[in-house]
Design a protein around this nucleic acid. Structure first.
Lengths: 188, 188
DNA sequence: GGCGAGTGTTCCATAAACGGAACGCTATCG
DNA sequence: CGATAGCGTTCCGTTTATGGAACACTCGCC
């Protein structure tokens, strides 16, 4: 899903076309869907033709009536699982999921570390902890000066409020899951 | 207007919370993110506090700057995202990824354990190891007779070649990631 | 042919989302 | 100390998304 770009006219037309296709697939008219979703016909018409910039409320109402996840309206059929990649010198990371729960927010990444390169990450805010579980390969990670060697089938964690590094030992790239846990500061 | 769709005040607050969490994890201020995304500070502030009903354009701009798919801002984990799910008496699991690599097959699941119920899994073939990282709640897992308590922000692993159990301690459900590693050829 | 019920689009007043400029606040500095 | 810079929130005029109504059009029916 290449949604990193801005909300362009093409994105609007593509989203509108997907809505129209799903509606046609269900054999219901524009007026009918608008009535069921509780939005104006003008709104739905403009949305399907790509001449509007809908609000979250409108999108939710329509996706709900079509019975599809919102991601299906907004993403290209190319790959709902292909999430954007964050690339560093040695590390390529894909965000698998992220949520907050209680006073803690969590991000789960899939990680691949290329061999032969060392990547240093700057310090995160205090209280951030990273958890690494290695699928294959051997990783050397952790805070600068306190390296931890993690082999396939092992896991490790470290406070990431200081600079820390990622590297793959040996020739084989490292595949792992990285979980970043971050306590939220109290919100007024 | 009436809450005719899933976009309620709670959804707005939840979405805002996810944005705020992702922003905090990246260590950038509200002003900074607003400037990078090209939206007004008032817009972002109202969005994070759940007092606005953002447009697709605004959401795209912010998701793009955070480097996450838009669906991750809008959808609840375990919600409308259509990922194959495996349900047991106490455990609901969704496969996040799976691959084989060097004679070892690895599967990464998102796990939710409901409180008040104990689930027992039969023994897997020899050599299978499970790794659990808990996001929130407190889990009691592991081989029968050797229970391990894993609190939020901890991880544990156990050989699963004997029957093993999953349970949530306390009232809160447990969210965690479970990694199952099994060699393609029997070990030992 | 006329007629009614349906379609999707366009017009328009209203409601609300937008961004800029204030605000109060907390740190940090000279 | 006061000055400055940053933070997140609130105020406010402008922009724009919204839904109802009117529109032109296509059917099925008598």
């Amino acid at each position: 899903m290449e949604n990193s770009g801005p909300w362009s006219a093409e994105a609007a037309v593509a989203t509108g076309g997907r809505i129209r296709a799903l509606r046609a697939q269900r054999g219901i008219s524009l007026s009918e869907l608008a009535r069921r979703a509780g939005v104006g016909k003008a709104t739905l018409s403009g949305l399907e033709t790509g001449t509007r910039n809908p609000t979250a409320e409108t999108l939710y109402a329509i996706a709900g009536q079509l019975g599809v996840p919102l991601a299906m309206l907004l993403s290209t059929p190319g790959g709902p699982l292909s999430v954007p990649e964050v690339r560093g010198t040695a590390v390529a990371a894909q965000l698998l999921e992220a949520f907050q729960d209680g006073g803690v927010s969590t991000e789960l990444y899939r990680l691949e570390i290329r061999p032969g390169v060392l990547q240093t990450s700057p310090a995160h805010p205090a209280g951030v902890v990273e958890y690494l579980t290695v699928f294959s390969g051997t990783a050397q990670v952790g805070r600068v000066g306190e390296p931890i060697v993690v082999r396939a089938g092992e896991h490790a964690s470290w406070d990431s409020d200081t600079p820390h590094t990622y590297a793959a030992l040996g020739d084989e790239p490292v595949r792992a899951s990285l979980l970043i846990r971050h306590p939220l500061e109290p919100v007024g």
